[in-house]
Design a binder for these strands. Structure first.
Length: 377
DNA sequence: AAGCCGGGGAT
DNA sequence: ATCCCAGGCTT
């Protein structure tokens, strides 16, 4: 169910149809501000396109503080394109474990192979070619092109959307193609063609430090005199988003099936949450309850475990796992009895408990995995 | 165009 | 509890 936010009628205030600031004025004010504030981040020390690429992917929808340790570990293990391309996907995912949005890791790995195969192991400098790489969209292509190669391509991320929509009064919803098109046009008009990298860095820093999502620091903002949102008292309303996200509940039931110091594991292959990561045999249900018949039918069908009928187990509930648009309720069923597989399962396999550390798991399962690894057999 | 993908921190 | 984070892919 989509619900328009209550201030949806702000569109009656027409946004500026022309620039309230010319590009040169905007750039001058921006650089003046930037000179005093500039952030110093590990990946800003050079223009190595590989390092810029990795950092940009890691920082997609991810805060600097959260991504930095992952970046440092990633660069240490995979210092260049070739080392990344030569790795097993499982190891790349293991390095990504806990960071979320795992398609980033899978696409990063695929793109490394792409670069080796198609571009002799060198990240292309052409914007169009950069954009052809897996996991690289408009934002990341512009970032790499400008930061690494000096290409004149304006970055448009959450920061830029916020800054431009407020200063220049873009009142059309920024989560629609029309709104984002306006932002893109504006961004490409404003960019410093002499030093696009510096400009892109500065405007994102400005959004991250001064023009904050909540309680922006308008008092000493260099743009306050010409800012549309400030003048019209619309700081809280811009950027305007038309869509609201709905939080859905999902119920996961995990079965800990052990034998001889090993535990059954499977890899999530479907186009769904945590694709590519490992987990224990599981059933998803519509609600928190799962009847015993369903459990034992699953064990029998999946593993041919006849002896499991009526086998006692201990059911525990994990802490509610909260995501942006999901609320995951997870239950763990631990069987005392040792099972032997009567028929081979295509999707699950036994892994010695002490080897669980080699597999990437969703954060949700970390506590269970830790527990299993430390059991003495 | 809409829905989906994770986890964490700020408010 | 809600929003948002150096977005992009699939349907």
């Amino acid at each position: 169910m989509k619900i328009l936010k209550k201030w949806a009628n702000i569109s009656i205030f027409a946004g500026t149809k022309y620039l309230s600031l010319h590009s040169s004025q905007f750039i001058e004010l921006l650089y003046q501000w930037h000179a005093a504030i500039e952030r110093h981040l590990p990946w800003k020390v050079d223009t190595n396109p590989y390092k810029i690429w990795i950092s940009e992917i890691i920082l997609q929808q991810t805060r600097v503080e959260q991504g930095t340790p992952y970046y440092l570990r990633f660069i240490e293990r995979f210092p260049d394109v070739n080392s990344l391309a030569a790795a097993e996907e499982q190891e790349v995912l293991k390095l990504w474990e806990g960071l979320g949005y795992y398609s980033r890791a899978r696409n990063l790995h695929a793109a490394a192979k792409q670069i080796v195969d198609q571009f002799s192991g060198e990240i292309p400098s052409d914007h169009r070619l950069i954009l052809s790489l897996k996991g690289i969209g408009p934002y990341t292509a512009a970032a790499i092109a400008s930061f690494a190669f000096g290409g004149v391509h304006a970055v448009v991320d959450g920061n830029v959307i916020r800054v431009l929509s407020r200063i220049f009064g873009i009142t059309e919803a920024v989560d629609t193609t029309g709104g984002i098109k306006q932002i893109n046009q504006l961004a490409s008009q404003l960019i410093d063609r002499q030093d696009p990298g510096r400009y892109n860095q500065a405007i994102m820093d400005f959004g991250a430090i001064q023009c904050l999502p909540k309680n922006p620091i308008c008092l000493d903002c260099p743009f306050v005199k010409s800012c549309f949102a400030y003048k019209n008292d619309m700081i809280e309303q811009l950027p305007f988003k038309a869509k609201t996200l709905t939080k859905k509940s999902r119920f996961f039931h995990y079965f800990i099936i052990e034998n001889a110091g090993a535990v059954l594991l499977g890899r999530r292959e479907k186009q769904d949450i945590w694709k590519g990561l490992f987990e224990f045999p599981m059933i998803e249900s519509q609600g928190p309850d799962l009847d015993k018949t369903t459990i034992f039918m699953f064990l029998k069908d999946e593993f041919g475990i006849n002896t499991a009928i009526g086998a006692p187990y201990i059911k525990t509930e994990l802490k509610k796992h909260l995501l942006t648009h999901r609320e995951i309720h997870a239950f763990v069923y631990k069987f005392e009895e040792k099972f032997e597989l009567n028929s081979k399962s295509g999707t699950y396999f036994f892994v010695p408990n002490e080897n669980l550390g080699n597999f990437a798991f969703p954060k949700l399962l970390h506590s269970i995995v830790q527990e299993l690894m430390h059991i003495q057999h």
